[in-house]
Amino acid sequence: MLDFIRHHWYDLGVISFIVSARYFHLNRSKLTTTQKFLLLNFMTVLVHQFEEYRFPGGFPAAMNMGVHSSERPDRFPLSSQSSTFTNVVATYGFYLPPVFFPDYVWAGLAPILFGFGQFFIHGINMNMKLGTFYNPGLASVILMHIPLGYYYIRYMTSSGQLTGRQWALGLAYGAAFWYLMLIKSTFGWLVDYNSPYPFYPNEMERGGMAAWIRRVRNA
């Protein structure tokens, strides 16, 4: 069961997306505007993860082969275990709770800001290291995370909910999440050169990213 989850958590996210869309539809008259934004943000990160790992996929290859030039790219530094842990915790522990507790504005602001931060990861850092204009996950960042984040901040500011204190708390919370989940966990505590949790070959080859990296570096 756990092995299935390690290699299909992003597919299971489709179920979460459908349930969320249904919930949004059935409760659209009850949800506040803030909650609608935050629920859409939760759904956006599900799309983002699906783009990274399923269609077109290829994020494990882009990260391990392209960014880190790993000698064991199927498991180092990113493994199916660390990827599952980080993404599942981020999705259901970071993005989802603010939907049901919208009065904690800082908690909702942090994942919105994290969406903007994804542009630094995908749009700048990874593209520079890969020598590309696209990598798995970038489309959803540009087409969904950034526009949604812009309209959320504009609405929250105009409605007086996004105060200086909320900005400070949101930035601090987002920075703490970034540091603990990405730097310390995903690429720190959970890194294992001999990890027993490799990505499957089909996960590595999706989207043609692995083949493209091999072709370019062997040219």
Rank of each mutant, 00 (worst) to 15 (best):
Leu109Asn: 03
Gly93Ala: 08
His68Lys: 07
Asp103Phe: 12
Gly108Met: 06
Leu12Trp: 10
Ser20Val: 06
Ser83Cys: 13
Ser158Met: 06
Leu38Pro: 02
Thr163Asn: 10
Arg214Met: 06
Pro201Ile: 03
His122Cys: 04
Ile153Asp: 00
Ser195Arg: 06
His8Met: 03
Tyr151Ser: 01
Met144Pro: 00
Pro136Ala: 03
Pro111Met: 08
Ala219Asn: 09
Leu171Thr: 01
Pro196Tyr: 06
Thr33Phe: 05
Tyr197Glu: 12
Gly160Tyr: 05
Gly117Trp: 04
Trp106Ser: 10
Leu2Trp: 15
Leu169Phe: 14
Ile142Lys: 00
Phe133Thr: 15
Phe85His: 14
Leu38Asp: 01
Asp103Val: 07
Asn218Gln: 14
Gly108Ile: 02
Pro73Ser: 05
Ala139Gly: 12
Glu203Phe: 02
Arg215Val: 11
Ser158His: 07
Phe59Ser: 05
Asp3Asn: 12
Ala219Ile: 07
Leu171Asn: 02
Tyr152Ile: 00
Gln81Leu: 15
His48Trp: 04
Arg154Val: 12
Thr91Lys: 08
Leu143Lys: 01
His122Gln: 13
Arg75Gln: 13
Asn41Lys: 04
Phe177Cys: 07
Pro98Asp: 07
Phe199Asn: 03
Val99Thr: 04
Asn125Val: 07
Ala219Met: 15
Phe100Gln: 15
Gly137Asp: 01
Gly58Ile: 02
Phe42Ala: 08
Ala210Thr: 05
Thr32Ser: 10
His7Thr: 02
Leu171Phe: 14
Thr32Leu: 09
Ile142Ser: 00
Gly164Leu: 08
Phe101Ala: 11
Leu130Asp: 14
His8Gly: 09
Trp9Ile: 03
Tyr23Thr: 11
Leu130Asn: 04
Ala62Val: 06
Leu130Lys: 10
Ala168Phe: 12
Ser69Val: 09
Arg165Ile: 14
Thr86His: 11
Phe199Glu: 00
Leu96Phe: 10
Val99Ile: 08
Arg6Ile: 10
Met156Ala: 13
Val14His: 05
Phe119Asn: 03
Leu78Lys: 01
Asn27Arg: 15
Ser69Tyr: 13
Ala90Asn: 09
Ala90Met: 13
Arg165Ala: 14
Tyr104Ala: 15
Trp178Pro: 15
Gly207Ala: 08
Gly170Arg: 01
Glu71Thr: 13
Ala219Phe: 10
Gly123Ser: 05
Glu51Tyr: 01
Ala139His: 10
Thr91Asn: 13
Gly137Tyr: 01
